[in-house]
Amino acid sequence: MGRSPSPGESAGAKVSDINSARPAGRRLWTNRLASAAMLGAVLLAMIPVGLILSYIFAKGMAAMSWEFLSEPTPFSFRRAEGGFLNGLIGTGIMVGLATLVSVPLGILAAIYLQEYGRGLLANLIRFFSDVMTGVPSVFVGLFVYTAFVLPFGFGAVMGAAALAIIMLPIVVRTTEEMLKLVPLELQHGSFALGASKFQTIIRVVLPSALPGITTGVLLAVARAAGETAPLILTALGSLTITTKLIGEPISALPLLIFDGARNPFAAGQERAWAGALELLALVLIFTLLARIVASRSKISS
């Protein structure tokens, strides 16, 4: 690509005719300025990366303790004790439920798009899954609120429903991309052995695409674990540990961090930093896993 040295840089030419064709004056300076601007943009973007990671790590570690990881939140923000165990459990329950629902449905939908769907309906589904990835997550929360919370009350299932709706289009689209990469010859090999379409998909297509699908699922999980806005409207939040799935508000790590960021007391803010470290670590672990799975699959194929 653009690696070859530009004419302006290929100094050392002996023939004076060639040298006289070197870009000079304005052209040369414009080129240098542009290169500097590109590098400047990169350096500028590195500032927030460095600041976010260093602050979360420093402030998070300062407030991190075994107590933080193993205790629920105290009822007063002023009190410097307790932790976010209630949020961790809530996040685990809701993200887990959402994954259980959205992954099979998303994979089936992707199979429809890739293996069965032809024509208008498939194109509509494809287009609106794309569009759905751009629906504001707070609106998804409003929807679940109007459709399910109003009749049934706040709870883990409601939060999970919102997260599942957010994950679904991500799973659909990444899975479809991965299914596309499975060579048609493999399918034909299976069909020629007398396999049905069902058997071919389950035994040949899905296993071949599994690493890619896993990557997509892990990224969707990371995204869901960090969502706050939809949970305000569906899980509501709670200071006590609950494992009830329905009929009782439940907490989540992002909800507790949001509360900490909004409150004026140092103890609450410190817990929020530790919570941010905990959440970021969770999200980055899933993101990293996704990368590892993705690069592994590239090597083997």
Binding site: L108, A109, Y112, L113, Y116, V131, F143, A147, S196, K197
Partner: peptide, 29 residues
């Protein structure tokens, strides 16, 4: 043979769910 067409139907329903949920979101809100 039935497993085949049942599976096809299952994927169709799952696929349509995207449209149904989107439509339901608009209507309910």
């Amino acid at each position: 043979r039935r497993a085949d067409s049942l599976f096809g139907l299952l994927t169709l329903v799952s696929g349509s769910l995207v449209l149904i949920v989107l439509g339901f979101m608009v209507v309910s809100t």
